[in-house]
Design a protein around this nucleic acid. Structure first.
Lengths: 187, 187
DNA sequence: CTTACTGTACCGTCTGGACGGTCTTGTCAA
DNA sequence: TTGACAAGACCGTCCAGACGGTACAGTAAG
């Protein structure tokens, strides 16, 4: 009857994210995760021998997912514009704000070093963007504005209306396509 | 000397920020804070009767400081341009990355609701910016790019070189002053 | 026999916070 | 001036509970 194997791992990972969101990032306990995942504590510890390993897996799982989504978004994007794909993918994630990734705060609370893989990821992504984007200033503006939106959604700052957000996204796509120009100064 | 150690509160607040940075946001314990502040645990509990009150004070203290710095930066800014002041002040904070505010993660881990005052602050600030900035699209771009930089500095993503950061800041100031704008898409 | 768990019992440590005591300072009547 | 007294600021200790992790016996499937 048991369908063991990888299924459990994913269930546990999802449960951890749920618990972090519902009980607060500081109250993510192994007992709670096990219960939520419908798994015994022993079973949890069998899959992730320590809490640190759980957190690490959480981070890596998320990164891998994002990476795959990015590659796919790029394929769907005109001329394979990476920056535009990044903007679009991020915007899509911000819309479905159902799961505000609170698990990341759990990981940071556990040990700030869990951010290291994210740092590497972010750095590599930025380097790729630098290599592929002709207008560097436009890249800077776009990239950081997207990160700003991500930050706002992470902390749940709802500062923009639906329209305003769409307006910003379309501005960003314009800039990403190199449509940024100095305005002539009035004499 | 009505209050023998009136600055105890400030010492404790500073100590809490230090401990959060040095021991990790998840290891901010009252004992550690008390020790760091050169105060007994009883003394700490006297000033902040509960850990939650400590966290709240941490957030409010920080907000108040930022608010005052912003008003001052504005006075120093040409035409009292609020957006430009915001950019400049934020940029200044990012340079002195000595104290990456890890205490905020402690607060979130303790209880995500501690973000509420920040949300209010951010909303009010944005509303003021909206009222005072003629070009709304430029505001969006600038504001979120600044938030993106803040996020990068918070998570310690060092993705930019010194030059690159300065370049971005000057771009942002240009946009803030209306000298750079996304070109509207041709119909 | 191995894999992949379940279930229970247990341990050592850490933490928030309650509590009672102590020292210092200010106030005010005599 | 002085002595009594109250309030403010802080100290040290103790404790119940929670948490991460271990150990181990059992079990069902392949």
């Amino acid at each position: 009857m048991k369908k063991p194997r990888a299924n459990s791992r994913d269930k546990i990972l999802a449960a951890a994210a749920d618990v972090a969101r519902e009980s607060g990032p500081g109250n993510l306990s192994l007992d709670a995760v096990a219960q939520r995942a419908g798994v015994s504590k022993g079973g949890l510890l069998y899959n992730f021998p320590t809490k640190a390993k759980l957190m690490q897996a959480l981070v890596e799982h998320h990164l891998q997912e994002f990476q795959e989504a990015l590659e796919e978004a790029r394929r769907e994007c005109a001329q394979g514009n990476l920056l535009a794909a990044y903007v679009k993918l991020s915007a899509k994630k911000f819309e479905e704000d159902q799961p505000p990734s609170a698990w990341i705060f759990s990981a940071i609370a556990e040990d700030p070093d869990f951010l290291a893989p994210i740092r590497v990821f972010q750095r590599e992504l930025f380097d790729r963007l630098k290599a592929e984007t002709p207008d560097f200033k436009a890249l800077l503006l776009t990239y950081f504005a997207v990160e700003g939106m991500r930050s706002a959604s992470l902390f749940d700052f709802q500062v923009l209306s639906e329209q305003e957000r769409q307006s910003l996204v379309s501005s960003l796509l314009s800039v990403a396509k190199g449509k940024l120009a100095p305005v002539p100064e009035p004499a």
